[in-house]
Design a protein around this nucleic acid. Structure first.
Length: 280
DNA sequence: CACTCTACCTGTGCGC
DNA sequence: TGCGCACAGGTAGAGT
């Protein structure tokens, strides 16, 4: 389940690894599953990718941004979203396709950039300007200015959990790190954004920042028996029924905005003004 | 505007 | 053992 820290790990490998993708050129493209290219924003024209060179590898929220120099246009941006189960890596040119390989970009150094995705949720776009795709997103969760974060919370009267997952508010937080950030901030997932006190907002901001920075450092989350990309140890996500690491209370799982939500009933108390839904 | 539902997918893990 | 099914997740789009 790639969220911001997992996507950042991919960026660092492709940008800073040996070999780096930067400076390499796409020779041919192999589309193993058509659906990876089609989307409401238009289909990717494979022929336009051939001959393009990688200028930079970056990220905004969970979107990967490959800035390209192209034969027929000054520049283009290849955008890839890994969604739930997508993986991106460099392999030797002749490496056999895996069962879940969706897209292969053959490169001019004997390697290939391969996109594997069992659940077919991941997508790729080729656009003149990355803003076409990421323009609607809020600021990246790792570059979140406290004052702007405060303004964005105040602007809506919404439950914190769905608001944190809304990529147009803040980009990069998914279900795991939303739960982890709210736990660290000591805030209930159903607390109302516009009703937070300023110290609560500060706590949430620093919780998001520290959780994500630690997770980037650990190269992603490590969730018991499910997801083991990195070493970040979760406190609440998937730990329903287990004791809270802080107070020993039993971690609960409820549904908030259709999403599984994990929290500690002792550490994350709803303030009197907020009305919780009686959910299980 | 805030929320809910549905669609998109398939591997996993449960109950029977 | 094997079958069926609910479930997980991020996002877009439609509907309330």
């Amino acid at each position: 389940m790639p969220e911001l820290p997992e996507v950042e790990s991919v960026v660092r490998v492709l940008r800073d690894g040996v070999p780096t993708l930067v400076g390499l050129r796409i020779v041919t493209v192999n589309v193993a599953w058509d659906g990876v290219l089609s989307d409401a924003n238009g289909d990717l024209d494979v022929a336009e990718l051939e001959g393009c060179g990688f200028i930079s590898v970056a990220r905004h929220g969970k979107y990967l941004i490959f800035h390209l120099e192209c034969p027929r246009k000054p520049s283009r941006d290849l955008i890839i979203h890994l969604r739930m189960t997508g993986r991106l890596f460099l392999v030797p040119h002749n490496e056999a396709l895996a069962r879940h390989t969706r897209l292969v970009l053959m490169l001019n150094n004997g390697l290939a950039l391969r996109f594997d995705d069992p659940r077919k949720f991941g997508r790729a776009w080729l656009v003149d300007d990355a803003a076409t795709i990421i323009g609607r997103l809020g600021p990246d969760a790792l570059k979140l200015d406290p004052a702007e974060f405060c303004a964005r919370l105040a602007r809506h009267r919404r439950q914190l959990k769905p608001l944190l997952l809304d990529q147009s508010c803040v980009a990069g937080i998914g279900n795991i790190y939303a739960d982890e950030s709210l736990f660290r901030a000591g805030l209930h997932p159903q607390a109302i954004s516009s009703e937070l006190a300023s110290d609560e907002i500060r706590r949430l901001h620093s919780a998001i920042t520290s959780v994500l920075e630690e997770a980037v450092e650990a190269q992603g989350a490590n969730i018991d028996g499910v997801f083991k990309a990195g070493r970040f140890a979760v406190s609440v996500y998937g730990r329903q029924g287990a004791p809270c690491r802080v107070c020993g209370s039993e971690i609960r799982k409820i549904r908030v905005g259709q999403r599984g939500t994990h929290y500690c009933p002792e550490c994350q108390v709803l303030s009197p003004g907020d009305v919780p839904h009686p959910e299980t």
